Computed example of a mutant assay.
Amino acid sequence: MKKNWHTPFALALVLLFGLSLFYIGTDGFKAYTAETARVNSLIENQPQFPEVTFEDSKGRVYPVSEFDGKYVFITFMYTYCSTVCPILEMNMGQVYSQVPEEYIGEDIVFLSISFDPERDDPVTLAEYTGHFNADGDTWRMARINDQEELDSLLEEFGVVVIPYENGDFAHNSAFYLVDREGTLIDVMDYTEIGEAAERVNTILENDKGE
Rank of each mutant, 00 (worst) to 15 (best):
M1F: 07
P8N: 09
A10Q: 08
A10P: 03
L13D: 05
V14Q: 07
F17E: 00
S20I: 04
Y23D: 00
I24W: 14
I24T: 10
I24A: 15
G25A: 07
F29K: 06
Y32D: 12
A34G: 09
A34V: 14
T36I: 13
T36E: 15
V39R: 10
N40F: 02
V52T: 07
T53S: 07
D56N: 14
K58T: 05
G59C: 04
R60K: 15
R60F: 10
V61Y: 04
V61C: 02
P63K: 08
F67G: 00
D68T: 15
V72L: 08
F76E: 11
M77C: 00
T79M: 01
Y80F: 15
C81Q: 03
S82N: 11
S82I: 08
T83M: 08
V84H: 09
V84D: 13
V84C: 06
C85G: 08
P86Q: 06
I87F: 12
L88Y: 05
L88V: 05
M90P: 00
M92P: 05
M92I: 03
Y96D: 13
S97D: 15
P100K: 00
P100G: 06
E101L: 10
E101W: 00
E102W: 05
E102Y: 07
Y103N: 05
G105M: 00
D107L: 05
I108K: 02
V109D: 08
V109W: 06
F110M: 13
F110S: 11
L111N: 07
S114Q: 07
F115R: 12
D116N: 09
D116K: 04
D116I: 04
E118I: 13
E118N: 05
R119S: 11
D120R: 03
D121W: 02
D121E: 13
P122H: 10
P122W: 06
V123M: 10
L125G: 03
T129L: 13
H131W: 14
N133E: 12
N133M: 08
N133T: 11
A134L: 03
A134H: 09
A134R: 06
D135V: 01
D135M: 01
G136N: 05
D137V: 15
D137P: 03
R140H: 06
M141T: 12
R143W: 04
R143Y: 03
I144Y: 02
D146E: 09
D146A: 04
Q147M: 12
Q147D: 11
E148P: 05
S152E: 15
V159M: 04
V161Q: 07
P163G: 05
Y164D: 01
F169S: 00
A170C: 04
H171L: 02
N172R: 05
S173V: 05
F175Y: 10
Y176H: 08
Y176I: 09
Y176C: 08
Y176D: 09
D179K: 03
E181K: 13
E181L: 07
E181Y: 12
G182W: 04
L184N: 01
I185C: 06
D186P: 02
M188Y: 03
M188W: 01
D189Y: 04
D189H: 06
D189N: 15
T191N: 15
T191I: 08
G194I: 12
E195D: 14
A196W: 04
A196M: 11
E198H: 02
E198G: 12
V200F: 00
N201K: 05
N201I: 13
T202F: 04
L204F: 01
E205A: 14
N206E: 15
D207F: 10
K208Y: 10
